[in-house]
């Protein structure tokens, strides 16, 4: 999964639905670890800002 940083609001909704703990969030940035990610697309589906797309 890939984050579109221009759209991301760092709200953390993606983290709550990630079943494998592949997403980290700090005050300034959300990051997805694609080595852990299983491409389940949960984060992409719930992201209210539509800031996640497929790909690495």
């Amino acid at each position: 999964m890939k984050i579109i940083y221009e759209l991301c609001d760092i709200c953390g909704t993606c983290v709550a639905v990630c079943p494998v703990d592949a997403i980290t969030v700090s005050e300034f940035k959300v990051e997805i670890d694609n080595d852990i990610c299983t491409d389940c697309l949960n984060c992409l589906k719930v992201c209210p800002a539509k800031a996640i797309e497929e790909g690495e």
């Binding site: 709200c11 953390g12 983290v15 709550a16 703990d21």
Partner: peptide, 9 residues
């Protein structure tokens, strides 16, 4: 730590 909680994990 809110909705995005990681500490629980």
């Amino acid at each position: 730590d809110g909705t995005e909680s990681r500490v629980g994990r």
